[in-house]
Structure formats: structure tokens, C-alpha cells
Design a protein around this nucleic acid. Structure first.
Lengths: 110, 110
DNA sequence: TCTTTATTTGGCAAATAAGCCAAATAAAGA
DNA sequence: TCTTTATTTGGCTTATTTGCCAAATAAAGA
């Protein structure tokens, strides 16, 4: 049962890494292809050191990987199922909004 | 662009809810079917109030939903794609372990 | 109505995470 | 070699989260 605990913790680490707006924003941007830290800084709109720390959290969780090329370090997505993750959670959010909307409708509150 | 920010934040909230060992453990247990809070307490091995607070985080993120029946409140999974989430992240963890293992092998460190 | 049982809430202390500045590193170019 | 540029690390403060206790709630049963 201890192996199970470790496994749960590793899995939680992945979700936790994705569970921060700035990190998710950067990961979402990486879906169109790799980007260097400076590009990600512009996208995130945060201090370079903050961005760097967020990226290392994502890297340690296995969500992204980095490669140095020339002067820059390029980050890209390494969690293969990320697209389906995001598609799924996005569908869920959308259906929730529709549900709320229909509740408002049936209550005639608008 | 502000709607996008909101959207990212809502999505991050889902991941954040799953990003805690105790919460993920409970969610994983719920995959076999609904459970009352007291059952989840036994599984989590934490104080009842702690469990209750974790459950409300999961509920607010839309991961689980609750229904009162008789004396108890039963929680069940409402995030439809949870199974594929977990299957995917688990496959990813497994491949990472295999990768590390083959690295150890090729370095003859064991 | 009074208890009991199941669950949530309030409040607080301890642990953890975030974000910024300054300093370190590392590699490329002059 | 000395600068410059890109990125990471250390350190510190502030904000957030966690987890427990005690108290509140709510509904069922005696």
C-alpha cells in the first residue's frame, strides 16, 4: 500500500503543477509549439525569475521538458495527454455554464 | 482576453483540486462508486473536518457532487473524463519509471 | 422534545507556495 | 579575456493552504 501512496503522490504532483493559472497559461501557449523562457515571460507577464520557477515545477512534474539550443532554453510539452486533459476539462466547464444558464432561464431571473 | 484568463483560472481550479494527495486518494476511491463521508474518512485517514473541507474543494471545482440520502451524504464523481485523466497520467508515470530504469541499466550503476 | 449521529463551519497555528529582488551561472560574441 | 544576454538560484516577505479542535447544524430515532 505504500507504493500506492507514492503513486498517488506522483500523480497529484502532475495535477498540482497544472493547477496554477500562470503555469496553465504557459502550458496552453506551449501547445502551439516550443517556446523560449523569454517568450513565456511575455505571455505570463511575470518576473523572469518567477517564470523560471514555475517552469521548473512543471518540468519536475513531467509536464514539460527543456532543451538548450543556441542562446536560449526551449520548453515544450512532454505530457502526451495534455490535449485531451484540456479538451475534457474545457468541455466540462462549458456544460456547467450551459447548466447554470438553463437554471437561470427556468427561474425567470433574467 | 479577459474571458480567456477567467477560463484558464476555472480550468486551473479543477487541476488544483486534484493536486493534493488526500483529495486524489478519495477521488480514486470514488471511482468504484459513491461513498459517504465517513467511508472516505476511513480511506483518507484524516480528521472528519479535514475530509469535509477537502470534499468541498472538490465539489466547488466540479470534480465530485454530493447527495443526501437517509442519514448520510454520498459523494460521487461528476467530472466525466476523470478516468481518462488518471489513465493518462498513470501511463506517463509508468513510462518515466521505465525510462529511469533503462538509464540506470545503461550506466551499470546497479 | 431530547439525544444521537453525520456532516459542516469557524478559527487558529503551522506548513507550504508565490513573487520579487539581487546575485550566480553559463555560454556566445567582441 | 571581457561583455553581454538568457536563465536559474538564493533569500526573504507575504499570501495561501493544511489540519486540527471545538462548536454549529440538521435530520433521525427514542
Amino acid at each position: 500500500m505504500d507504493a500506492y501512496r507514492e503513486y498517488i503522490e506522483a500523480q497529484a504532483k502532475i495535477f498540482k503543477a497544472l493547477g496554477h493559472p500562470t503555469r496553465l497559461l504557459m502550458v496552453d501557449a506551449l501547445r502551439t509549439g516550443e517556446k523560449c523562457v523569454c517568450e513565456l515571460q511575455t505571455i505570463a507577464g511575470a518576473d523572469m525569475s518567477t517564470v523560471s520557477k514555475h517552469l521548473s515545477i512543471l518540468r519536475e512534474a513531467g509536464v514539460v521538458s527543456s532543451e538548450k539550443r543556441g542562446t536560449n532554453i526551449y520548453y515544450s510539452i512532454s505530457l502526451c495527454c495534455l490535449d485531451s486533459f484540456l479538451a475534457c476539462s474545457s468541455a466540462m466547464l462549458q456544460s456547467r455554464i450551459l447548466q447554470q444558464y438553463s437554471m437561470i432561464q427556468s427561474n425567470q431571473k433574467d
